[in-house]
Design a protein around this nucleic acid. Structure first.
Lengths: 341, 341
DNA sequence: AGTGGCCGCTAAACTGATTTAGCAGAGCAT
DNA sequence: ATGCTCTGCTAAATCAGTTTAGCGGCCACT
């Protein structure tokens, strides 16, 4: 691949100068005393030969590769990952960097392998990403260079990028209060495991906290809270059926994510209830499915692109060591209405 | 990153041998006449020092980087991409390679940039992937080395990996015939643009061809065929409503993809019809929502992981120059039943 | 005794860049 | 004429590997 490319020596020869001169000119070194004419000749020669530096050679000397490792447990291959990678890719491109992607699949052997693979390639830094927002311990091997945690924090106090789930929870609750919902708001997706173990999830706790904060400030208590073992459509469906079997029907439902909401929609449809006339629904994530549902689902968007972008910025431009919270915009859609009656 | 690592010279010194000897031993070179004892000493020294070769230095000499570029129009950041990348990642790891990912976003400037970026890094080969299965022309710059097209073909006769949509179409039609559906099968998702322009889609034509083949072999004609401008839920919804407004109600629906089927489900639900008792539905892609729908949606799975894997295999192990078709397994789910009455 | 071959190993060149140290010549002052 | 500084540039070292060419010693054969 890219075999017979012109080398710096070729450029220098053509310009009638030394490699040193050519190198300095092309790197725009300050304080060199090369003449304007020398600059001209080097640029011209490089242009004519279509010169592109051999980055392997360069990085051998400089120990820079203009390459960032994107190491994830499994994020690179899930629907949630798209935006993270896209954002990181964009920010990297703007800084003339490129992304080396590996996946550990949560397996220690693979992780070991992935980390050695990227360190062997002398990456300039590592973005360590998690699929679920959570706390984790990074493998010590990567601590030799810059690291940014994406969608995760660690006890080491490494720079990290997280979605602002707490604020999203407040936004969700506020949206319902503003519409006049008060005494018949139900919540789907309580889960002690997620809420209490930061190594499993940080989002559950933060979302819940935000919601409770706003509700208790307004002196509102939840009509019901449904436990869900997982945040999948079938669990949302089951939870919604349970809610509908109770004497008082809720006027609004908060789902801890869009897939639960999808399941809730299914149960509502079967029960012949309509959203939002009979019941409002609001949720978290802004999964693509949220916009596809009928009626479209109001939700708070996980800012994946922003997060990926922010991670690269922190890594290359440096910055805050406090967790960088990226806000989750509220998408107001058709699933919201004032309570009936 | 990876600053004070042991070098080959360190290993050689510790083993009391030359760099040459150390290099040859560690690379397992055949035909060298180094003693068994020399081997021992080198391995021991490398082990003790935790030696890992500097790949930049190595590739400067060998022009191999053990790195593959994964260049895509936009695939890397969509839900459909996950599997492609995952498969490629797995196959690459098995061969001790790593993936450099870039995205062109269909923009010529970005594409130019992406290609230069990967060529500058001396990748061993390029996987050029497309989001929609289609024919495309690859930028000449990457033709200097091995290239495999993923989810695409080109007029250049480059090796390529495609899903076997034709066979999937046959499987879908056969599944309905087997259940006894004959004279009331409708199709949602006809689209001339997709069917006739291979630069837009190859899948539409192939799926349709497979379906038509099986049906005409069985002397069956479609009850109706609905045009859809895009293959999104709203179009499936509209198409389904149109179908339901006609005098004869279909007994089964084939949707050109799962998102159309999702829309069709919505229309059926609103009309109070149930799947599969009133109408069977079958589709293509095996989008995650297919399994989440109630009832779960029968569909043919795009074999993303297999495809990504195959692309790497073709690239590194060599192989067929005829397009490599990967079969799309039929997922039999609850949306299928014999026709009512 | 001469020489040819094999054995076990190494010195040095090479990859393509960056970077350090320093050289030749001009101009100026003494 | 000598010494000094400044200008404009270059030779050579360096990064960490791979690869080529070949060296010295020993044995066997003629």
């Amino acid at each position: 691949m890219g075999s017979n490319r012109a080398t710096l020596a070729d450029v220098a020869r053509r310009a009638g100068l030394s490699k040193t001169a050519a190198s300095m000119v092309l790197n725009g070194r300050e304080g060199t005393r090369l003449s304007a004419e020398a600059h001209q000749r080097v640029f011209a020669a490089a242009e004519e030969l279509g010169y592109r530096p051999n980055l392997a050679a360069r990085s051998l000397r400089t120990r820079k590769t203009a390459t960032i490792a994107f190491v994830s447990d499994i994020v690179a291959t899930t629907r949630f990952a798209g935006g993270l990678i896209r954002g990181a890719l964009d920010a990297a491109r703007e800084r003339d960097h490129v992304l080396l992607i590996t996946e550990t699949q949560g397996d220690a052997t693979f992780e070991q392998y992935a980390i050695e693979a990227v360190l062997d390639r002398q990456v300039d830094g590592v973005i360590y990403a998690a699929m679920a927002t959570r706390r984790l311990t990074v493998p010590p091997a990567i601590l030799g260079g810059p690291v940014v945690l994406l969608n995760a924090t660690s006890p080491d106090g490494l720079p990290s990028v997280l979605p602002d789930d707490d604020r999203a929870g407040r936004a969700v609750a506020s949206a319902l209060l503003e519409l006049g919902h008060r005494d018949a708001i139900a919540l789907i997706g309580r889960n002690r495991l997620k809420e209490d173990d930061p190594e499993v999830s940080l989002a559950a706790r933060a979302r819940l906290h935000g919601i409770q904060q706003v509700l208790s400030d307004a002196d509102v208590t939840l009509l019901a809270e449904c436990f869900c073992a997982e945040w999948l459509p079938e669990h949302g469906y089951a939870a919604m059926r349970t809610l509908l079997s109770r004497p008082q029907r809720p006027s609004a439902i908060i789902c801890m994510n869009d897939r639960l909401a999808f399941g809730a929609y299914q149960a509502l449809g079967e029960a012949g209830l309509s959203v939002p006339e009979d019941i409002s629904v609001i949720s978290f994530d802004d999964d693509p499915i949220a916009a596809w549902l009928r009626p479209s689902l109001a939700t708070t968007a996980l800012p994946h692109e922003q997060m990926g972008r922010r991670a690269v910025e922190l890594l290359l431009d440096g910055g805050a060591t406090v967790p960088s919270l990226v806000s989750m915009p509220l998408r107001r859609r058709r699933s919201l209405a004032p309570p009936a009656g």
